[in-house]
Simulated assay, not measured.
Amino acid sequence: MDPFLSWTQANQPEWIAFLKAMVEVETPSGDEMAITRFADLLEKHVSDIATVKRVKGPGFGPHLLLEFDLPGAKKKGQILGLAHSDTVHPTGTLQKFPFAAKAGRLFGPGVLDIKGGIAQFVFAARALRAWGIPVAKKVVLQINSDEEVGSDSSRALSEKMAKQSDYVLVVEPGTGLSGKLKTARKGTGDYSVRVKGIASHAGVDFLAGASAIVELAKQIEVIAGFTDLERGLTVNPGVIQGGTRTNVVAAEAQVDVDIRIARLKDFNALDRKFRKLKAIDKRCQITVEGGLNRPPMERSQAIAAMFAKARTLALDLDVKLEESATGGGSDGNFTAALGVPTLDGLGMVGEGAHTLQECLLLDRVADRTALLAKLIANL
């Protein structure tokens, strides 16, 4: 049996205990005190193998940089791991959805996205130390506190660390119940389109009004038409609001729109379409705000080469590794856009992320942790 696999199997009870401790510190995005408690817990658990630096994330809590003390002589270059501490689950979720092991799975808020990935990275480092496997590069795990809400506070840090790195390993969950790695992600963005009309009494002075709602409805049809599935470009008008009362011709209305693009070169043309929106009723005014907040992670030759290496290493674990592309974004989008070889989806295998059925597969803990250790040792 592969030595890393045998070690991770033998140490799986400790792995589960570590994950349980992390999950039971709830960390909703934007709760600085909760994120700080999580940072305290994590620093205590890794103090024997890593130094921890805290970077201020105003409004979100500290971002963490864990530099591991791994075997090997003088190291040249750096491997950057990426994870995040925040989850979408509000405080109190544990009361109705506690950490639990049943039917070959581990359940709990954030267990898959992404605290299982953090446990995986830490135990991959422990496996390397246990076997005394020399590592050629410095290994740092960056844990951001605001990934689930756009990474505005942590983006600069991610890009700075990526520029100092030769490779980036992202421990977001794999795709599906086979745990496919992610070699491409769509870029993500948001637009707000606001319409200002003219209010009037709907019964007494109907013709004097210019309905912002009616105008917005027409604009939404135009906006939805920006979708181009052949180019991997989707535009989703997701939230609308407007008006005050049914007997008032609406003076204001707004739609919030999600965009996803597979290729960065398609963004400028899409942005121009939003900026050129014109009111059909000339009495109305249109204002457009927004843009791209995560560039796409496009599958490059360097990313393909990283996946090929991981696939070969996985064969030692009797795992047939596959790759995937996804419409969701991660902090790996930022690093890949800088040209730094980035491999995503290296985290745990499971399903139900962001729901009250979130879980990971127990029988994939050992091989995923072992694969990460082998990859770190071979980059």
Rank of each mutant, 00 (worst) to 15 (best):
L64G: 04
A370I: 12
C359D: 06
S85E: 02
V257E: 00
R368C: 02
L42W: 02
S47T: 05
V140I: 14
G209S: 01
I16Q: 09
T227V: 09
A373D: 10
F99A: 11
P109E: 11
K138I: 04
F307Q: 05
K53Y: 09
A156C: 05
L41D: 02
L233Y: 02
A130I: 10
G197A: 05
K76L: 09
V140T: 15
G242F: 01
L360R: 03
D2F: 14
K273T: 03
H45D: 15
E43P: 01
L361K: 11
V139G: 00
V88W: 02
D367N: 08
H201Y: 05
R105S: 14
L181K: 14
F274Q: 07
H354S: 07
G187P: 05
F267A: 10
V171G: 07
A253W: 05
G179D: 03
D166T: 08
G59V: 12
V139M: 14
M161R: 12
I114C: 06
K138F: 00
D2I: 04
S165Y: 05
G117Y: 08
A224D: 09
P90R: 14
N293P: 05
A210G: 14
L181G: 13
W7C: 10
F18C: 09
S300T: 15
M306Y: 00
N236K: 08
T246P: 13
D146Q: 04
V288I: 05
A314I: 13
P13K: 15
V257N: 04
L128M: 08
L270S: 07
T355Y: 07
A305R: 12
G81W: 09
K320Y: 11
D152E: 12
G345H: 00
V204K: 11
D113F: 02
R194D: 10
Q95T: 07
E230Y: 07
D266K: 03
T342V: 06
D316A: 11
G242T: 01
G72P: 11
F38C: 15
G225N: 00
G290D: 11
T87K: 10
N247A: 04
Q254R: 13
V122E: 09
L141H: 15
K273G: 04
T93M: 06
D258R: 06
T183R: 10
K374G: 05
G332K: 04
E159Q: 14
V139E: 00
P28H: 06
V195P: 00
D316H: 12
L42V: 15
S145W: 00
S85C: 11
S6A: 13
E252L: 02
H89Y: 13
I118M: 04
D190M: 03
E252C: 00
L315V: 05
R231N: 11
V170M: 03
V111R: 07
D258C: 02
A304G: 13
V52T: 15
D228K: 15
T246R: 04
L42Q: 06
L338P: 01
V170R: 06
F97N: 08
V349Y: 11
F68G: 12
D31T: 06
I286Y: 03
T51L: 07
I303E: 07
Q254N: 13
G174Q: 10
V55A: 00
T93E: 10
G243H: 01
F121W: 09
N236H: 10
L66A: 12
A353Q: 12
V25I: 15
P109M: 14
K138R: 15
D256L: 06
